[in-house]
Structures are given as C-alpha cells and as structure tokens.
Amino acid sequence: MSSTGDASGLAVHTEGLTKRFGQQVAVDAIGMAVPRGAVYGFLGPNGSGKTTTIRMLLGLVEPSSGSRSLLGLPLPSGAGQALPRVGSLVEGPAFHPYLSGRSNLARLDAADPLADPRTAAGRIDAALDRVGLRAAAKKRYRAYSLGMRQRLAIAAALLAPRDLLVLDEPTNGLDPQGTREVRSLIGSLAAEGITVLVSSHLLAEVEQICSHLGVMREGRLVAQGTVAEVRGAGPMLVRVQTRQPEAAAAVLRELGVTQVVTTVGEVHGTPGDLEPEKIVSALVYAGVGVQGFTVAVTSLEDLFVSLTGEGFDVSG
C-alpha cells in the first residue's frame, strides 16, 4: 500500500498493534509505517485511537498484542535508546504551574540522563526562541495562555537533538496565526531531516505540510501511504458538459466508465483506471459535441469524511 521499503528505513513501525481497555478495543491491529524523513499526518476523529496509539509508541501504555519499533529499535527493550531521540507532545501540555516556563524546561532537562548540564542553559534558550517564548520564559506557567502552554510543550520536545518528533494535536488551542507558525515550524524541522508524526482531527491543519497520511477510524488504520497514494484510493470523477448527454453517457458506458449519471447538459462518472484523454478522443470520434470536460480528484476533505464518517460524533 505504501512505499515502505525495509523495516530499518522506518522511523515508526507497528504490526498488529492492539490495545484493549477491558472489553473495549481502543486500537485494533494497526500496522503503521512512517518512513524516515516523512511528515506523517495521523488523522482521525476524536476518540478514534490516535492518542492511545501514540502512548503505545512512546512506551506509556503497554499494547495488548502486536509489536512496535521506533527508529528501528523494538519496544519496550529499545526504549532507553530510542526515546532520547524522540521528542513528543502527548495530549496537550502539562507542566508544574508554580514554576516558570524556563524552570519547567530545566526540570525536564535535568531528568534526561543523556543531557549535558553544561549546555543546558543554551539549549533551553534555543528551544524557547524556536517557539517564540523567550520573552515570557520567566513567567510562571500558570500565567500562560493556552497558546503559550502549547508552545512550551513544543519547546520541551525540542530540548535535545531529535530524529523523530511525535506531536499529538500540536495546534490545539492556538489562534490561526499560531497554527500557521506551528505549521511552518514543522516544515522547517522536516527540512532538517527530522521525521515528524503529527496527529490531528482537523485535516485542514496538516494537509499542506504532510508527505504521508494515516487515517484512523474506530481504532483501525483505514488508509495509509503517501498523500498521493491515499488520494488515489479515493474515486476520480469525470464531468462532460454537452448538449447530447444521452449520447455522451452511452460512449462513457461503452468505455467502461462506471456510475454514469446524466443530468441536464452534463454527464459524470467514475473512470477507474481509464485515462481521461481516451475519453475525450472517444467522445469526439463518436461525434458528441463537448462543451467542457473536467477531471476532478476527490478532495482530501471529501476523502477524509468518506474514510472516517460524517459529523461530529465521537466514534468508539
């Protein structure tokens, strides 16, 4: 389904990863493949199992069955080697409210057995700079706005050099300006060669920056691959504007176009593997006057809805 290559080329790889909480299956046998260097959009409605999956990837939750590996190292045995190279943001920011933003980062850095205390101050400043929080570094965390909290959490993920960033809903609570900044930050991190796994329930937030997509629905990974591959999984549509819709419909059916629908002045259908050029030439050859011809790729939005279901209902 996707250009996975061998397993060692994957930053994140799971096979049959499953988590049950009591009777409920939160994550159902998912096989995730995030190639190194990719920006992987992990999509799905709230409650579809994204966060549980991310918790399993980070070793916070033990899977009921299945295997997972990070940066080529199997978990849980390789966690001690893999996790220092992974920065994460899981289910929103969480810091000590009575410490300043800077002190909170210093605490996380102190907890890291691999962090060099001599470079701590510089790294903390750099991380704060990167998210534009340097000016508010000395404020207590409790005085931070939701957007500042979110930025601090991203700064924490950037405290040490990383090979992989796992960002769960990184734009939650950010205003449009902040959302754009996070998006460009992710873009620049990806440009440095860092693999990014970014989850969202809002397609629009991630579709511009992702190279790969994985779509969750009710605990299952219902689609995965490069953006083009996932788009390709959706049906293509051809529309023919003509004064002779019946004749056009006949030609289309003859060519093997399915779901042909005739309306006033227009015919549309699903061409499958058929090349659009052949349809046009066949129409012209049959003497059908073509006023207009469009090939519509299903929008990612439509696709997302078709994969995950409509509406605001929380699945699962």
């Binding site: 940066l71 080529g72 190292l73 390789g78 080697q81 893999a82 220092p84 190279r85 000590h96 009575y98 410490l99 210093a106 605490r107 102190a110 907890a111 057995p113 691999l114 962090a115 060099d116 205390p117 040490a160 050099p161 990383r162 090979d163 060669g193």
Partner: peptide
C-alpha cells in the same frame, strides 16, 4: 551498530541532577 541517526548522544554515567531538581521542586513549593 544501532541506528545512524544524528541525535544519538553519549550516555553520561553519573548524575544527581534529577535528584537535585526533585529536591528543588519540593523545597520551592509554597
């Protein structure tokens, strides 16, 4: 042999940084 990523950092052997941070957290709380 494991991984060739850019972010591998050498393991530091001994540190009481986390403990000191923990004590500061306890002592600093009003």
């Amino acid at each position: 042999g494991v991984g060739a990523g850019s972010a591998i950092r050498p393991r530091r052997r001994w540190s009481t940084r986390f403990l000191r941070s923990e004590l500061r957290l306890i002592a600093g709380r009003r």
